[in-house]
Amino acid sequence: MSDNENDNVQPKNEDPAAPINIKVVTSQGEEVFFKIKRNTKLSKLQGAYASKVGKDVGSIRFLYDGNRLHEDDTPATLDMEEGDTIDVMVEQVGGTVL
């Protein structure tokens, strides 16, 4: 989902075979673009991204609209639109020394 785009609503492409462009963005603003069919599992995108950055996919959090992506999510099930953004961040760990 993009911010502040209420006046730019486009008709949705409902063809499940039609690819859409998805942007994966880190908290530092680095962007990687993916073209993916609407019925393709986003886990494929996650794996490709992790491979691209050379990290274990389990160590990265993929979020769409603030929600963590699930194994079976696809652009169609999430009602994603052309140019939507997936946020990516590292797992957070905090504590104190006992």
């Binding site: 911010d3 502040n4 963005v25 908290s27 979020l63 603030g66 929600n67 963590r68 953004t85 946020d87």
Partner: peptide, 28 residues
Amino acid sequence: MPPWHMLNLSMYRQRAAGPYNPSRPRLR
């Protein structure tokens, strides 16, 4: 809110040109 929400807010704000006004409501 989930523990990554504050980090998310920082990212949303960097992208937004002005006030918080997403095209559709987010989590919670």
